[in-house]
Nucleic acid binder design. Structure first.
Length: 284
DNA sequence: CGCTACCTGGGT
DNA sequence: ACCCAGGTAGCG
């Protein structure tokens, strides 16, 4: 349930609430959740460290530590992070608990158990998590439609598949890809390299608008402090199979594209890529 | 580049 | 009793 707006919200909350604080204790409840080093080394590396920064790259949360190491967190599908008073009841889906100054603790929870953590010196972490291979951040000011056009032009796969590839562009998850394609009036099955310049510009704009809207509503899930975001109520196509398209009323179609659940409006997102769609008005 | 495994809870 | 899940690594 964690796409980029949700992860970015958590990163911002961490910057506000945990930067400057010290990790006094670490508990690993699911050893597989620690990618590297080994769980005991992971605990030893963190204990006593002060958190000096918090940021997001793609769907990773990166916490800088005062000894030149970086702690990475990834929520995968259902992971979440929350800050609660020490001694709070530990949910059974807890993977890692990090106590801060003995007062509060960061709880990494995930019912699926896919969420992951890792710590290493920054350079090593960057190379082991292949962070330098990630594409440009959709939300970066210097991410232009030219960049998007160049990257899409080299791909022969369906648009939807390409948009989910964080090495092409970092920022879209399944929901935000579907929402972006609807807003841009593009069929998710179209080949990425087949888009016209105008279509790429519509897509570029739509991606940024979708992520910014998600951010302004503080995502769909609970933030670090347990407050729910409101973005769930703003979906146009995602998980709205059979419901009327908000733009033209046509029932939303659902199919698997590139192995992923995909939702779109056959009228607003024509197969041919005809440039005139009812979505045009929604974009502006 | 496309497919599968990873794993548990909630929906059908 | 199924099935499926908003992500990714790792495989062929």
């Amino acid at each position: 349930m964690a796409e980029v707006p949700e992860v970015e919200i958590i990163a911002r909350d961490l910057r506000q609430a945990v930067v400057g604080r010290r990790i006094t204790d670490v508990e690993v409840l699911l050893p597989e959740a620690v990618r590297f080093p080994s769980p005991p080394e992971f605990i030893a590396s963190l204990r006593g460290r002060c958190i000096t920064g918090a940021r997001r790259r793609a769907k990773f949360i990166l916490l800088s530590l005062d000894d030149g190491q970086t702690l990475a967190l990834h929520f995968m599908l259902w992971g979440t992070l929350s800050l609660r008073p020490v001694g709070s009841e530990s949910p059974p889906e807890s993977l890692v608990v990090m106590t801060l100054d003995g007062e509060e603790a960061l709880w990494l929870t995930d019912t699926l158990g896919y969420a992951r953590v890792a710590v290493a010196r920054t350079a090593e972490l960057t190379s082991r998590l292949k962070l330098e291979e990630l594409g440009p951040e959709v939300l970066d000011d210097d991410f232009t439609s030219d960049h998007l056009a160049r990257r899409l032009s080299r791909r022969r796969s369906p648009l939807k598949t390409v948009l989910l590839n964080q090495r092409v562009v970092a920022g879209l998850g399944n929901r935000d890809a579907d929402e972006s394609l609807w807003k841009a009036g593009l069929d998710p099955r179209r080949l990425a390299a087949s888009l016209s310049r105008d279509e790429v510009m519509r897509l570029h704009r739509a991606m940024r608008v979708v992520l910014e809207e998600g951010l302004s509503l503080r995502g769909t899930q609970r933030d670090l402090f347990g407050v729910k975001g409101q973005a769930k109520h703003r979906r146009n196509v995602f998980e709205r199979t059979g419901a009327p398209c908000p733009s033209c009323g046509t029932p939303i179609t659902h199919a698997r594209v590139g192995g992923r659940n995909t939702h779109w409006c056959v009228r607003c997102q024509p197969e041919s890529g005809a440039p005139s769609g009812p979505t045009q008005g929604v974009l502006l």
